[in-house]
Design a protein around this nucleic acid. Structure first.
Lengths: 94, 94, 94, 94
DNA sequence: TTAAGCGATAGTTTCC
DNA sequence: GGAAACTATCGCTTAA
């Protein structure tokens, strides 16, 4: 087996994986579209629904950011969140 | 069960489905990124690889249409006249 | 005149120059946008126009290199064998 | 003069304008780079300088946003900012 | 010098 | 259909 044919096989594999993943991604995007269509036909206002989803995502991101900051503080204090002591500290400042 | 609570339940269900699907979609997008990174570290040229994938994705009809448009523009600017092949093409369509 | 005030004046000058240049750069970017909008409203296909500009911008050497890479990938995947021209090319390089 | 040749001339004109503007834009980008290089060789910390410029830009944007909001209020009251009365109102709430 | 993070730009999708 | 928002890609900058 030469390097060249190895490269060729590798390229083929990469392309196939990307195309397969892209297909799956598109299928999911279509599913999402369908859910919005269903919502609309149930009388929900699509833009409002999108705004709601967006807001929830932002809130989640913010919460994660806060938790990351808190964890960095805890790390600075040598308290890992997976120890009982760290968990106690977390409750104390929570 | 009132209409109101039905609506509430339905909304909750819709939101959850959309959020779940969005999460899955993002996970796949990350996977695709990973494959491109792997390709790059294997020595492949990422932009060329993207161009290849794109070309394969475009169905034949669309691709021909795009190329026809581009060629007509190039023709208008005399770009084809720079190459022997282009000159032949110009004679062919002249 | 102290060194400190020299530094201060110099910094002020640098900042002003950068801000002025940035402003000019943004103005030109807006102009480019306008030209594309004009092209579109004149019936030109914007993506094709962008592709044309890009192709002209790439110097010949670089373009040939990119096309060679893409072609080698396509060759590896057997894409050329789909077209008569591709088959001729394959025979030519075979 | 046919439509076709008109189109051709128009395309040529559009392409030339875009290319000229792009060239100017790139020249300015190079100038900016030069100023940063000059700053660095004068002993300034480039990332800090960038941060400063960025902050000034953000402040300016915020100020403009505030002014836009204020103006919308004034418009709602029928007070245009280019009238003496409007200017007086602006001072009053400033 | 190169890899990774970031900022800017181009393209796609959505809403009106 | 046109404008606007969002996503994804590309090039630059910085740090190792």
């Amino acid at each position: 087996m030469t390097d060249l044919s190895n490269s060729k096989e590798l390229l083929k594999s990469l392309v196939e994986r990307i195309e397969k993943l892209t297909e799956e991604k598109q299928a999911i995007a279509d599913d999402i579209k369908d859910v919005y269509a269903e919502a609309k036909s149930s009388g929900f206002d699509t833009p409002a629904l999108r705004a709601l989803i967006k807001r929830r995502a932002e809130d989640a991101a913010k919460r994660e950011e806060r938790e990351a900051i808190l964890e960095s503080y805890m790390n600075a204090l040598g308290m890992l969140s997976d120890t009982p002591l760290g968990q106690a500290a977390l409750r104390a400042v929570g």
